[in-house]
């Protein structure tokens, strides 16, 4: 009973995270806002769905696989977002949306 309720709670929160990502992809105006919304709320949504099934499942192998996927997602999602942001910065895409560029002040000599 408790596990069913907990699973329902995590499922609803995951779906809310995902629909937030979908709306943010349309409504946000520049690339960095969209990257921010996509990376954080997608990680939250996928982790919520994984937790929802981890709570209600009763086989050990399935729970271990879900834990492995959780750890993998927690490690790889920020790496992908950082690589994309760095690529977009180096290509100078959407430069008008950056109001204060601290990165360029720090490394103005090595970036050329």
């Amino acid at each position: 009973m408790i596990s069913q309720l907990l699973s329902l709670y995590f499922m609803i929160s995951g779906v809310i995270f995902f629909i937030t990502t979908g709306i943010a992809m349309i409504r946000f105006s520049d690339f960095y806002s969209r990257l921010h919304a996509s990376s954080k709320s997608l990680t939250g949504g996928a982790l919520s769905i994984l937790l929802a099934y981890m709570v209600q499942s009763d086989k050990v192998a399935v729970i271990l696989k879900l834990i492995l996927m959780t750890l993998f997602l927690l490690i790889t999602s920020p790496i992908a977002a950082q690589a994309l942001a760095r690529t977009a910065y180096r290509q100078r895409c959407d430069r008008n949306s950056i109001h204060y560029d601290e990165y360029e002040l720090d490394s103005s000599d090595e970036l050329s």
Binding site: R34, L35, L84, Q91, C93
Partner: peptide, 9 residues
Amino acid sequence: PDRITAADS
């Protein structure tokens, strides 16, 4: 990069 981000999502 916009398209790549959306495809990742």
